[in-house]
Structure formats: structure tokens, C-alpha cells
Amino acid sequence: MFTPDNILTTTIDKAVRWSRTQSMWPVTFGLACCAIEMMAAGSAKYDLARYGMEVFRASPRQADLMIVAGRVSQKMAPVLRQVYDQMAEPKWVIAMGACSSTGGMFNNYALVQGVDHIVPVDIYVPGCPPGPQSLMHGILTLHQKIMDGEINR
């Protein structure tokens, strides 16, 4: 119960970092098969809602995290960059799967060889595609990274 005489002591830094991790809304950016695994992570069995992350926003203005799930073609690259630019600070990027991390099996003219050519990436999740567990491990690692990091990025 929350009564008026309860006191919670913490530092501003810690409170800010904690609040950033606890409802990190991802922007919808599913590009290929990884998106299916991302949706599975959001659904009842794996339940991203446990971390306050179940709301995949259709607008980048309302999002904190971009999960790039799938291969990024040369034509999609400027779109991806624009969506990233439209997100409000602070913002983070997870490159989900082999394709968005490195280009994966598609080493050819059509695809960007790693989404880190376009946007700064915080976490790379390996796998082809990574399962919901791997994605959630990536997300928890990102949470840990935020908790350990500075509030001014």
C-alpha cells in the first residue's frame, strides 16, 4: 500500500535510467521473417508486456526503440533512416537477426550489408531468425546497458 509517510530514496540518474527501461515502446519495423518472431515475442506466450513493451507503435514519434527485424534493401534504407530520424530522443536500435546485423546470406547488390551503415545500433541479436527468447535476451541486455550507462548519451 502507498501511504503518505512512505519514503523512497534514489538518485535522479538511477530513476531516469530505470524509467527508460520499464516502458520502452518499439516502433513497428518488421521487414521479413524476423518480424514473425518479433510478433511471437509480443504475443501471449512470450509476452513482451512483462517489460511494458507490448505496444508496437505505428508512429515513430511515440517510440523509443527500433527493432530492425529483417533484411534492409537499398531502397528501404532511406525510409529506415527517416523513421529513425523522426523518433524522439532518447532512442535505441536493435538489429535483429543476421540480415540486419551484417547482410546475412544476402551478399549482393540489392541489400544493405548491415543496418549499422545507416543508423547507430545498440544491440545485435544473432540468429536466422532469432527466436523470441533470443530477442528478449537482446532486449534485456539493452535494458542492462541503459541501467549501466549515462543518462546523457
Binding site: 537499398q74 551478399n107 549482393n108 547488390y109 540489392a110 550489408q113
Partner: peptide, 16 residues
């Protein structure tokens, strides 16, 4: 603004 026509046989795969 792409240059070339990728499915031509003399167009490289663009592999790095």
C-alpha cells in the same frame, strides 16, 4: 537513381 539492370548476365552480384 540506380545505374544498370541487375538481372543481366554481365551485371555483377555486387558481393563484398
Amino acid at each position: 537513381d540506380w545505374v544498370g539492370h541487375p538481372l543481366r548476365k554481365n551485371y555483377g552480384s555486387g558481393r563484398i
